[in-house]
Design a protein around this nucleic acid. Structure first.
Lengths: 199, 199
DNA sequence: TCCGAACATTGCAGTCACTGCACTATTTCA
DNA sequence: TGAAATAGTGCAGTGACTGCAATGTTCGGA
């Protein structure tokens, strides 16, 4: 899907290492001191960067914990824009959202840290996708563009909101059952499609 | 529903006036200077209270703009706990959520302000219910308590998340069509129930 | 009607997330 | 190798939010 694996200059390499260091540091510190007991300063220090640099990579403290880059928004929106033409709005939305949460080519150590953090701080479940306010807006715009009718925007909004709802639920389920996010997403989606006793 | 209209002491009266003053001030200032151009200090000053007092009533700056009291959480959860026994989980959830967003015995002036603010600051649409992190957790707990099976918690989570999704979409729709929140909620819900091309 | 308990308001000092800016260090590539 | 592009950093500042201790206001009973 993103076959740009080769062009890894020194610059790009360092960037990734640095980001991973911050993400890992953030996770470790939350485990040690709890969500409220962690300062950006502490994260930056453990990762070996300045606090200013921290904010050059992550838009908020939480985003570093979750591991959502501030730059990811546009990628996701672009991905959706493309996919919509392939499979139609409904499937595109599902595909992109599943990708967005399960895409994590992380080393297993960080994966394990994530699990523990999520278990310790349930507040992060909702935050995890709640942070993505801007991507939400963009996704709605993309979907509204391909829907018909004067209520296109409204229908797009509902779709995206439900998509995020499923995503959030997937986070939670992933935690509770100790399974990976992709699988959890599928499970929740199946439950949703049954439409039984949901909402 | 809440027939406690009589016991209005001086204390309670002042409290409500003060809260309304803050809410109104917040709305006005957002209209004047935009969401980012408003400080809590400015809101408090226009409402005639100290900033410290402001935070005794609202948990965040945004909650004052939206008009969601920090104390509302427990009420809503309690309401759900009661309603669940009346109509079952699904209907209870719908009922309580509809109440929660449409409950606004405000004077029309404030209603109008709200509309304008929502139109000017789309960011608030998602924020509006996103703020209610704690109530979300409590609602899940309540629902999980009455559901069967070992996946009760997960099903409850999905239900609540979708409920909030519908709510957020209702906010947006209410704005776009200039209709009141209750009606918008019903519309969105109808669209959701059709299950057509949603997600 | 007056008093004490309960509760609301306030000022103050402090912490911390986050930003703009100007500057330095590193990487790239011609 | 040198200049342009990009990343890191220090610094100063803003503003949200909190705990605490003091003060003011309302309430209910004797």
């Amino acid at each position: 899907m993103t076959p740009d694996d080769q062009p890894l200059g020194l610059r790009e390499l360092k960037k990734r290492q640095s980001r991973m260091a911050m993400h890992r540091a953030a996770l470790e510190l939350v485990l040690e001191h709890g969500l409220g007991g962690v300062t950006v300063e502490a994260i930056a220090q453990r990762a070996g960067v300045s606090t200013r640099t921290f904010f050059n990579h992550w838009s908020t403290k939480e985003s570093a914990i979750i591991g959502v880059l501030s730059a990811a928004d546009e990628e996701i929106a672009a991905r959706l824009r493309h996919q919509v033409h392939e499979t139609g709005p409904r499937e595109a939305l599902r595909t992109v959202m599943r990708e967005a949460i399960s895409s994590a080519p992380f080393d297993p150590e960080v994966r394990e840290l994530r699990k523990q953090v999520m278990a310790k701080e349930p507040k992060l479940h909702s935050l995890s996708s709640g942070n993505l306010l801007s991507v939400q807006t963009e996704m709605v715009a993309v979907l509204a563009g391909v829907l018909d009718g004067d209520d296109a925007h409204e229908r797009a909004m509902l779709s995206v909101q439900i998509g995020f709802a499923v995503t959030r639920a997937a986070f939670s389920t992933s935690m509770a059952r100790g399974i990976d996010l992709g699988t959890a997403f599928d499970d929740v989606l199946a439950r949703y499609d049954e439409g039984d006793e949901v909402f």
